[in-house]
Design a protein around this nucleic acid. Structure first.
Length: 570
RNA sequence: CGGGGCGUAGCGCAGCCUGGCUAGCGCGUCUGCUUUGGGAGCAGAAGGUCGCCAGUUCGAAUCUGGCCGCCCCGACCA
């Protein structure tokens, strides 16, 4: 492609509404343009990268034995009512009616549809296992789209679904996908971590996320610097204190005034007591019933853990009225002392704490020197908090590390959740009807692009991994009006095209500086410069985007070098 | 949805507080000439419902109200 003819609108200035590097560079390098919040137009350069990624995904999925299909983005709401997920997804789903009043939605994911298909088409164990996938646009009415293409309302996803006769067979299908994902992300040139994850709306018990570490990521994950432990932060187990140290002489419980101090921070400041020496009493309602939870002042309640414990995800903070009913006191001064007729669920650490500060269930009053056992009863002790950076690794005890990451892929063992609900059964060897055991596997295609840029750029622009670069080579003709320069450039351009090497030719009649800046910005791996060196010594300069070295070679030699370099990465 | 911020030419911004003539600046764009190894120079030109609607006023980009859009933080979301 000649740059003079290409729609590659680069920007010198950083757009004001782009916060993170990948978003800024995707706009500046002319990959995307925003249509509205959460939807983007992919320009030629962006679309080329997208296609590169898609091709890699497709080849690895096919290699793993998965078969490509295409399901509609428009789906009947009926199927979602059957699975019970319409309510669960709630506002996240775009809904609409057709002219007859039939309820439809734009698919945020496709478990319902694939299960429907398999229900009708798979009837025998002889047809299993099977893995079907598609690369398709998903729609999610996100509360807050952000960071460009990282969280958008419309995005491209590769989603695969496996069906097996039993869990043992599912383990194999799962591993196959897990390995395929590693190959896909390796080929995309990404550095990533695989972490244990929460299954959320998908359901199922086992899942792993593929995370690209980046400060721009929306997810936090935990890794151990010593062993191989890696987990999403919400899943990381906190170690119970094995041998709680009781203070030798607990102080007497005492009520003291804390006017207007309704938060841990305010009380901590007022009483000059560190948050870690306080206990917060949280009242939630789970399926409408109030629960009382105790967490150390400097810790955070982990709703996922609480949900697992209570067996529901319908957990919301109690309103002021419920709090009054439960504690007899106003919001902001709740405490465990004197609570009746309600079980107190405490985080593991509470048991070992002594002489701590907590609410007195009366306005403007807190207790100091509270001690569990003596002053109130803990009904149940559980791991309820979110792990912190000062916690030990649940596996080996080394201090863990917390990092941010971009979730580019997620694999789930679903089990029979959907097959049971939607009736995807098959006849086993004994002629008995069994629900298929499912797995599902997603990759965010757009996120791979953003993650690759987050992973690899410098002050001048993008540095593409070779396998997903929109073009392999860019030829910069310093002064294309010069006949010899044009001639040599044309020769290089033709030679690349003859070898099927993707090449951009900057044939524009503009000053050289712009061309170099542009080439760096759009991040093409190999740059060939035809300029005064060519005129004086009949050589072309070859420079790689990811190195500062530049070599001068005869035009024929340059082509050989380029071919070698491009093939190395295939 | 709660909190904060923004909306003036394709992009980045000034002007608004303290209302007033033809709404500016930089980049980009177009024409011509000179340039061409790291975002060139000169000369000329095009490009604006000042987000929208209403109100106050002799007069509104500027003041007031409503609405819309966009960004950031949060609710923990594949």
């Amino acid at each position: 492609m000649k740059l003079s003819q290409a729609l590659i609108p680069t920007l010198k200035e950083t757009p004001a509404d782009a916060e993170i590097i990948s978003h800024q560079l995707m706009i500046r390098a002319g990959l995307i343009r925003k249509l509205t919040s959460g939807t983007y137009i992919y320009l030629p350069l962006g679309q080329r990268v997208m296609n590169k990624v898609i091709n890699i995904i497709r080849s690895e999925m096919d290699r793993a034995g998965a078969q490509e299909i295409l399901m509609p983005a428009m789906q009947p709401a009926e199927l979602w009512e059957e699975s019970g997920r319409l309510k669960q997804f709630g506002e996240l789903v775009f809904r609409f009616e057709d002219r007859t009043g039939k309820k439809n939605l734009l698919g945020p994911t496709h478990e319902e549809i694939i299960t429907h298909l398999v229900k009708n088409e798979i009837t025998s164990y002889k047809q299993l296992p099977i893995n079907l996938y598609q690369i398709q646009t998903k729609f999610r009415d996100e509360i807050r789209p952000r960071f460009g293409v990282l969280r958008s309302k419309e995005f491209l996803m590769k989603d695969a679904y496996s069906f097996d006769v039993d869990t043992k067979s599912l383990d194999k299908s799962y591993q196959l996908m897990y390995d395929a994902y590693c190959r896909i992300f390796d080929r995309c040139g990404l550095k990533y971590k695989i972490v244990e994850a929460e299954s959320g709306l998908m359901g199922g018990d086992v899942s792993h996320e593929f995370m690209v570490p980046s400060p721009a990521g929306e997810d936090l994950f935990v890794t151990c610097p010593k062993c191989d432990y890696a987990s999403n932060i919400v899943m990381a187990n906190c170690q119970p204190t094995k041998d709680p140290k009781k203070s030798e002489a607990p102080q007497a419980l005492k009520k003291i005034e804390t006017p207007g101090a309704t938060t841990i921070e305010a009380v901590s400041k007022f009483l000059k007591v560190p948050a870690s020496q306080m206990v917060k009493t949280l009242i939630y309602t789970a399926d409408g019933d109030p629960v009382v939870i105790l967490i150390r002042g400097d810790h955070e309640l982990n709703l996922v853990k609480l949900g697992r414990l209570l067996g529901t995800d319908n957990i919301v903070p109690a309103n002021a009225k419920t709090i009054e009913n439960v504690t007899g006191g106003p919001l902001g001064f709740s405490g465990p002392v004197g609570l009746k007729d309600i079980k107190i669920i405490a985080d593991h650490l509470i048991q070992g704490m002594t002489d701590f500060v907590t609410g007195a269930n009366q306005a403007d009053l807190h207790y100091i020197n509270t001690n569990p056992g003596r002053d109130f009863k803990i009904g149940q002790t559980e791991d309820l908090r979110t792990i912190t950076g000062s916690d030990p690794c649940p596996k080996c005890g080394t201090k863990i590390e917390i990092s941010r990451g971009i979730e580019i892929g997620h694999v789930f063992k679903l089990g029979t959740k959907y097959s049971k609900k939607l009736g995807a059964n098959f006849l086993d060897q004994n002629g008995k009807s069994q629900p298929a055991v499912m797995g599902c596997y997603g990759i965010g295609v757009n996120r791979i692009i953003a993650a690759a840029i987050e992973n690899s750029s410098d002050k001048d622009g993008i540095i593409w991994p070779k396998n997903i670069a929109p073009y392999q080579v860019i030829i910069v003709s310093v002064n294309p009006k010069e006949e010899k320069i044009r001639e040599v450039s044309q020769k290089l351009y033709d030679a690349c095209r003859a070898e099927n090497i993707e090449v951009l030719w900057d044939d524009r009649n503009i000053s050289a500086g712009i061309k170099f800046k542009n080439a760096d910005l759009i991040g093409i791996p190999i740059r060939l410069t035809v300029g005064k060196n060519t005129l004086a010594n009949n050589v072309v300069d070859l420079k790689l985007r990811n190195s500062s070295e530049q070599n001068s070679l005869a035009p024929d030699k340059v082509i050989t070098e380029v071919i070698k370099s491009v093939q190395q990465n295939k």
